[in-house]
Amino acid sequence: MADEKKRRRAAGRVYACGGVRRERVVVLPWRRTLSMCVANVRHRRGRALITFVCIAVVVAFFAATLAQQELVNELRRVGGVEVHAALERVHAGAPDGAAAARQAAQQRWLLGLSVLLCLTGITNTILMSVTERVREIGTLKCLGALDRFIVRLFLIENACVGVTASVAGAVCGLGVAVVQTGLMTAFSFLSGRMCMWAALYSGPRAVALGTVLTVVASIYPTLVAARMKPADAMRVDV
């Protein structure tokens, strides 16, 4: 039986059905997938906005921390006595080892907690939109959608929101870092080059974090959606 199925699959799913030989195709082209995802995000702007803000905030926090670290390091490296004095005044100079370690640990905690909160928040939001769309998913399946189409639709839809939110968050985070570091040193020592380095250092990491976060958060809701039965389309009580 299993061999027979494999053989059929290898033959491009061509086999007799109702006495007629024909090729069995079920497809969802990428272009249509994308347009469906964009339409869905637009239709549910409110819900997407919650996810967007969640991710943007966490990513901004992460990007700001990274960028500021990088800026301060750079300032310390190239700056003269005045810079060190300025940094010393705001305790951002070269603190002693123990204090630095404590500060770093605190920041990691904060980041970890916010990531966790963000994950549960997004998972919940997406799960809500999945249960809201039980009938729609059932209908898609009745029309011939495979489980993996549903997975693809939901993952891409959320990844779209995740990536845009991450980019927005990274830009905001970088802005905050530049302003904060600038305020410490009265802006006089910050150069465009430094800011660019900080952006290159923190930007990609922050966007990667945001994207991974969204994808991880959407795995469970997506599986719930994919496992729904086509007969769910008949439900009247949703």
Partner: peptide
Amino acid sequence: DPYELAWLRCRKIGYIFQTFNLIPVM
């Protein structure tokens, strides 16, 4: 198998529902 069932639903059967079930964004 699930693939063939999806194909069957797609090509052999047309579904009409009590609640219409059009995709709202389309």
